[in-house]
Design a protein around this nucleic acid. Structure first.
Lengths: 249, 249
DNA sequence: CCAGTTTTTGCGTTTTTATGCAGGGATTTC
DNA sequence: GAAATCCCTGCATAAAAACGCAAAAACTGG
């Protein structure tokens, strides 16, 4: 078989089945593994396939893109995400809500981190998937179209089965008197369950949302362990929270 | 034999078989390799063939079906999706696997359709949520990073709880003898569960995958009710499936 | 017909290409 | 953390291509 023929065959297989194993290819075509590997290399250089350990994948299926820019207060959120990431160690189970801050966090996870992340938010999950060493558990249920997160009793039941080491809550409003509040009833139910299922609860909130209130209550201040904002920990705005017994970062 | 004659012969062979080997040509025509090589060179200069090491290929062979838009055989998949959509009525519960064909289907759903769609495939779910009147149920569990679909016992258990009206399976390989087969063990487990949980099982497959086999068996032909390809229902390729009792569309 | 020119062809020689093989690392897996 | 896989590098070899050359064939214009 001619080289081009072989490559066309490989390309065809990849497009048909979204993946090929080099071992099965060299079995089918009856050539050495090296030849297959060189073919895969060339096709990958041309961008026609994506080479992975042991074979290749179709490029079309492998990159789901999602709006990356246009995030409100992105730089602040990056600061917050960076602080939050410092709390994660290898082997941890981390439960996260949805929200743009959490998406930033998901994007900025170090590549060598090995941990398990659990969430019901599709945009967040999409970011987790890009990290090779991270196990991703998706909470299933009905999807709320505006928040792109799974909501409902099934989701809550699944969260109850978990005991996570860490829980990151993207926070809509936090206030000394009313604690953490939000504006979507179903999302609030989820967050409540997440708080109960985690050893340590961390609220991520841009300073703008500190000392604001939303209609539905998630939990009181005693329900959370830590608050992360883009401000320095000793900022005057956060003093009352420290006094209320919350770790501030 | 005259030069022109020879070249005409070569061209004929290339168009007939999509490829020629210079060795076999100089054997057939009884001339030296150099002569053949010069002929090939000239034909290649005229753009009538594509010269490669060891012979030549038909120019159509090389540039045929390369996915410029990202999705392989997209037009065929659109035809399939259109047929599949005609099976869906308002109020139905529809269970779907992953795969590019299903993504096409999800994209092409009519906006006024009111139905409930259930899937564990993230790319597919992302398309469903664009439709305002569609309820979307996400099957949760661990995510398989290459197929971007939830896999595992939890997912299977959830699927078992459902009884869907319709199940669309993106098919990797279907064959008279071996039935529906696939190449990912975990995905196969899911598909099996989906088949059991549905009143009517519809396989979506481009014709190219019909009569091909993959290593892992999903179900026998008796397990499915309908097969949709981009071909006409009375195409000879599909006759045996009709005979086997499968509705073909 | 014929000398001169061009084209075509075949034959060495050199270069390039394709492929397999061996080893040393890297990575994955259990 | 040890075993198994896979991957990369360099090297050897065989096949194919390119090049130059010269002989043979074909054409050309008297």
């Amino acid at each position: 078989m001619l080289k081009k023929e072989r490559q066309a065959y490989i390309l065809h297989q990849v497009n048909l089945h979204n993946k090929v194993l080099s071992a099965s290819l060299c079995d089918e075509i009856k050539v050495s593994e090296d030849t297959i590997r060189r073919d895969l290399q060339e096709l990958a250089d041309e961008g026609k396939i994506i080479k992975v350990h042991g074979g290749a994948l179709s490029p079309s299926f492998n990159h789901v893109n999602f709006p990356s820019n246009g995030v409100y207060s992105q730089s602040q959120k990056k600061v917050i995400a960076q602080k939050a990431i410092s709390l994660i160690s290898n082997g941890m189970f981390v439960l996260t809500s949805g929200g743009t801050t959490i998406i930033e966090l998901a994007r900025m996870l170090p590549h060598q981190l090995k941990a398990t992340f659990i969430s019901g938010s599709i945009p967040v999950i999409l970011e987790y998937i890009h990290h090779p060493n991270i196990e991703v558990i998706l909470i299933g249920d009905k999807i709320s179209k505006n928040s792109k997160i799974t909501v409902g009793s099934q989701a809550i039941a699944k969260i109850r089965e978990i005991k996570a080491d860490l829980c990151f809550l993207g926070t809509n409003a936090i206030d000394l008197e009313h604690g953490v509040t939000d504006n979507d009833w179903e999302v609030v139910q989820l967050k409540k369950a997440m708080i109960e299922s985690s050893k340590k609860v961390v609220c991520l909130s841009i300073a703008e949302k500190v000392n604001t209130v939303q209609p539905i209550r998630v939990c009181g201040l005693s329900g959370i362990d830590m608050l992360i904002t883009e401000l320095d920990a000793d900022n005057y705005l956060l003093k009352p929270y420290v006094k209320a017994g919350i770790q501030v970062m």
